[in-house]
Simulated assay, not measured.
Amino acid sequence: MKTTTTATGGDVRLTGIGKTYGAFTAVHPLDLTVPQGSFFALLGASGCGKTTTLRMIAGLEEPTGGTVHLGDRDVTRLPPYKRPVNTVFQSYALFPHLDIFENVAFGLRRRGVKSVKKQVGEMLDLVQLGEQARKKPHQLSGGQQQRVAVARALINHPQVLLLDEPLGALDLKLRRQMQLELKRIQTEVGITFVHVTHDQEEAMTMADTVAVMNAGRVEQLGAPTELYENPRTTFVANFLGTSNMVEAEIDTVAGDDVVLRAGGGKLVLPAGRCSAPVVPGGKVLVGIRPEKIALAHADDAGTVPDGRNRLTGRIADASFIGVSTQYVIDSPVCDQLAVYVQNVERDGRLVPGAEVVLHWSPAHTFGLDAAQAIDAGTDTGEEAA
């Protein structure tokens, strides 16, 4: 089944939208466009303003300033029930006394639709619960109940489906299954999904576009791969996965490369991957993801290919986690460097206390403005916000 958005559909456009509570600013005025038919995630830690933003789209919070447009329609002052929007919350809010069929049919019956069997059947098939139609909610798993909540929202054919931490109550394995299910459903129905989450993996797994929020502002907006590979701030670099940050000084600019000095050695950074001012003598934070780094025992330092960035260090800790081993390396330029090595050909010499060479392709290096806090984004809560 492929349902397309109606002719009255369109992008979700927030223009100068903001929210204050007395002296506290929950959302600073922001401009944001969610393309029609996309899966969009608002990602951030507790208190960052992501849920407040979602609630302003839904009409559950009145903005202090700015406008909300759905397509060409200004809905800023419309109450929730007059907006072509439905919301799915973390608490499924299913009616316990009604079976699954009647839970999904509820919205249609409330609108006076007499013949609901075909529509409800199609929606239950979409969420793969056709055989559970006559069960009560308590007879279903958490993941199945969440799919019922999605079906109940989608049957009203909203222009936009808002999801507020919808998987937060599920265990890890079930949450990962539901991530793929929600993405499949969104692709099949073609309706705009706006998803609020604090879970970085969840946002990157499901969304076409992610807006990383911090302290009521959008820190960076882009595709998951772009945010991960090319973070523009230390907050984004640290909040999305793990980043190693090395303080360095700009030595020279050679063509498309920036040559840096760090701890007596030299590192190369592509100029196009540096968001800091490129001025000889200036400071920059060099970022490298743990999985991009290779480890060689110090005895094998001569085998490291030319043209690689390299640092020396000593293994402080090693944790075997099945698919990879996670090392913590103390280096003259940075304590506690993280390195993730796939367990393909394990080197028995790489144990705590061993002297090592860390090396990686310069193309995997990114540079950030050294004026930022190097640890921004590392100490964030995991509650819904």
Rank of each mutant, 00 (worst) to 15 (best):
K114F: 01
E122T: 07
Q90V: 13
V120K: 03
S141A: 00
D99R: 07
A105N: 11
F95W: 15
K135H: 12
S91M: 13
R109S: 10
Q90N: 12
Q128E: 15
Y92C: 09
G130M: 08
T87N: 11
S141R: 03
Q146E: 07
R109K: 15
V127L: 07
L98N: 09
R111I: 12
T87R: 10
P96L: 03
Q145L: 05
R110T: 15
D125M: 02
R111E: 15
L129V: 07
Q119C: 05
D99F: 05
Q119S: 13
Y92I: 05
G142A: 07
A133E: 06
P137G: 03
L129I: 02
V113M: 01
Q146N: 04
V113A: 07
V116P: 02
P137A: 10
P96S: 10
S141C: 01
P137R: 01
R111K: 14
A93V: 00
N103K: 08
E102H: 15
F89N: 09
T87P: 10
Q128L: 06
R134K: 14
S115A: 15
V104W: 10
I100K: 09
A93E: 02
I100Y: 02
V120F: 06
S141M: 01
G121R: 01
A133R: 14
A105M: 06
R110A: 15
R147M: 11
S115W: 06
A133V: 02
G121T: 00
Q132W: 12
E102Q: 15
Q146C: 03
E102R: 15
K135L: 12
G142I: 03
R109E: 11
L98G: 05
L124H: 02
I100F: 12
F89C: 09
Q128N: 10
K118A: 13
L108H: 06
G143R: 08
D99A: 04
F95H: 12
K114W: 06
Q139R: 08
L108Q: 03
F106A: 09
V104M: 11
R111C: 05
F101Y: 14
K136F: 14
K135S: 12
V116E: 03
T87L: 14
V120D: 01
S141F: 00
Q146K: 07
M123R: 01
K114E: 14
Q146H: 09
G121W: 06
K114L: 10
K136Y: 14
R147T: 09
V104S: 03
D125T: 10
R147C: 05
N103V: 04
V104Q: 09
G107H: 08
G143M: 08
